[in-house]
Design a binder for these strands. Structure first.
Lengths: 191, 191
DNA sequence: CCTACCGATCGGTAGG
DNA sequence: CCTACCGATCGGTAGG
């Protein structure tokens, strides 16, 4: 029934593999055994497809962060945020790739909206790290840089993660949590 | 004299801002006050421009790693590699951005060559980390993941580094070194 | 380095 | 969902 979801999903795979601009509407249609013009009964434009993918991923990240109890202690909160973040990427790698790689090709009004959603999402991490520092659980030289360092390590995952590989979500999450917590000088040993 | 270098440099800026496929040959020419066809006295194809940028960046990374004395102790070697890596990115942000973001749009023969250069470059990091673990300077749960974690944190820099910002290379290098060394459970305090 | 031009392909529409 | 088609733009060439 929902042909639009089929189109978006196929487009997501192709955008991940070839990039947004190197994928034509005809490419997407062909992969679905359709003619290019047939897509336009379900979508208004190529840009709309990109928007659906990128905005959907932004929403997935935001919702997964908002599902975490805000009253958790900061170390547990950060651990849950790391797990949630990795889960969104692993659960839908093409969407995550397009989100990180192609969002800039949205027209400015829309890309600004994504930037806002992303800032909001990242604030959950910043907040947890900030609270952790205040409570003496974490120790960093430069809080701003610590945030950037952690986002960097998490955001590059889509570049190398192999869904067919051996690394499953739980192990990935444990490894990330351990390295990030060590980089934050986490005091407790068992987490 | 070297018009080709002018073309490549301007293209690098535009590719960084808009992406390879969203930048036309006419865009590059216009930014140099030329007509599109005029570029073809200096270049063979648009692809050649991309190749010059990406291969040049790959070479810059590789050379900077090869300039480090191989007999340094592993902790000092890793520190020097981090510094060299950040220097290449900071010294030429557009080239680095295109290298990380657009290399995949090279035809397969050429992109494979880049992948090989990159593997070779990364092996310097892997080697230093491996030696550090062997000598008991570093402790990690999963060496393979530790490598990926560190590359991730370093490779995402081009996404957020602001050349006009306050963070200069030396401070950036210190901050990265500190967080990475902590994530590796580095035993000595003064580095 | 320019003018003039090429075939191919692009995103998208009309009409059924 | 298709055929037929649109104007615009693409990378690139010829010839000067």
């Amino acid at each position: 029934m929902d042909r639009k979801a089929d189109i978006t999903q196929m487009a997501s795979q192709l955008f991940k593999e070839r990039g947004y601009h190197a994928t034509s509407v005809r490419d997407i249609a062909q992969a679905l055994n359709l003619k290019g013009s047939s897509l336009y009964s379900h979508i208004a434009s190529k840009e709309e497809i990109l928007w659906e993918i990128v905005e959907g991923a932004a929403r997935a990240f935001l919702h997964s962060a908002q599902a975490i109890p805000p009253n958790l202690p900061p170390d547990q909160k950060l651990k849950a945020l790391i797990h949630a973040h990795l889960n969104v990427i692993v659960a839908n790698l093409p969407d995550a790739s397009v989100f990180f790689h192609e969002w800039q090709f949205l027209p400015e009004t829309l890309s600004r909206e994504i930037t806002l959603k992303r800032d909001h999402y990242e604030s959950y991490f910043r907040q947890a790290i900030h609270e952790g520092i205040e409570q003496g659980l974490f120790q960093v030289q430069d809080e701003h840089f610590a945030n950037l360092f952690i986002f960097s390590s998490l955001n590059w995952l889509y570049q190398w993660y192999d869904p067919e590989g051996l690394l499953r979500l739980e192990q990935l999450s444990n490894l990330y949590t351990q390295m990030i917590f060590k980089s934050l000088n986490y005091q407790k040993l068992n987490h």
